[in-house]
């Protein structure tokens, strides 16, 4: 359906914006390495199911793309364009996010099985993975416009999945309560950012936090 397609597209675009920003400016200023590391974890734990579950060629290619691009971005950030200044303000304690997501995945899952727990873990972790990045924005008070486009596209992906879930619930009777709940949590975390993005970036102002 259209929402799911738009969501996936926006997810894809967000990664391309980020890659393009890094390559062009040859800098990772203002980008949280911690958030990017969390995404590697998210994609690895969620998409390793491609080794034992086949959905479609589209699904497989997208999964491979997200796993490889996220690892590549972390590689660029650590080895190629290392930025100690940015690292110094990237101080969000991600061990709590990882630990919390792990505990939640043990409690909430469809089956107490390795693959299912990993799947649940990835959903919980994804819902909070942007926090180090948002925290960094808050500390610096402003961001490059491209960085805000990246965050917006990334947030739009899960937000667009919400009407997709409603659509699938109506048309197929399919309800993935874990994905829906974590997707809503994720959207709430982004809501403040969306609001500022709408009021400043889209109206041509610099992204500055009030």
């Amino acid at each position: 359906n259209i929402f799911r397609a738009a969501g996936d597209l926006s997810h894809l675009i967000s990664i391309l914006i980020l890659l393009n920003t890094i390559q062009k400016s040859r800098s990772i200023a203002g980008i949280s390495l911690k958030t990017q590391i969390l995404y590697v974890l998210v994609f690895l734990t969620r998409y390793l199911d491609l080794t034992y579950r086949y959905v479609s060629i589209y699904n497989t290619l997208m999964k491979l793309f997200f796993i490889s691009s996220s690892i590549y971005i972390v590689y660029l950030m650590i080895y190629k364009f290392k930025n100690t200044e940015t690292e110094q303000i990237d101080t969000f304690p991600i061990e709590y996010l990882i630990g919390g997501s792990f505990i939640l995945s043990l409690i909430f899952n469809y089956k107490f099985q390795f693959g299912e727990i990993l799947w649940s873990f990835s959903l919980w972790l994804e819902s909070v993975a942007i926090l180090p990045q948002l925290f960094m924005l808050q500390r610096t008070g402003e961001a490059r416009t491209l960085t805000t486009h990246y965050i917006f596209a990334l947030g739009a992906y899960r937000t667009l999945y919400i009407p997709n879930w409603i659509f699938r619930w109506i048309s197929e009777g399919r309800v993935d309560y874990l994905a829906i709940f974590t997707g809503i949590v994720q959207t709430i975390i982004y809501s403040d950012f969306f609001y500022i993005y709408y009021h400043r970036v889209l109206k041509g102002f610099k992204f500055e936090l009030p």
């Binding site: 579950r53 999964k63 469809y110 089956k111 099985q113 299912e116 997709n164």
Partner: peptide, 10 residues
């Protein structure tokens, strides 16, 4: 139909 949900989304 399997007892776990089909994870067909990204």
């Amino acid at each position: 139909k399997s007892d776990t949900l089909d994870h067909d989304e990204l």
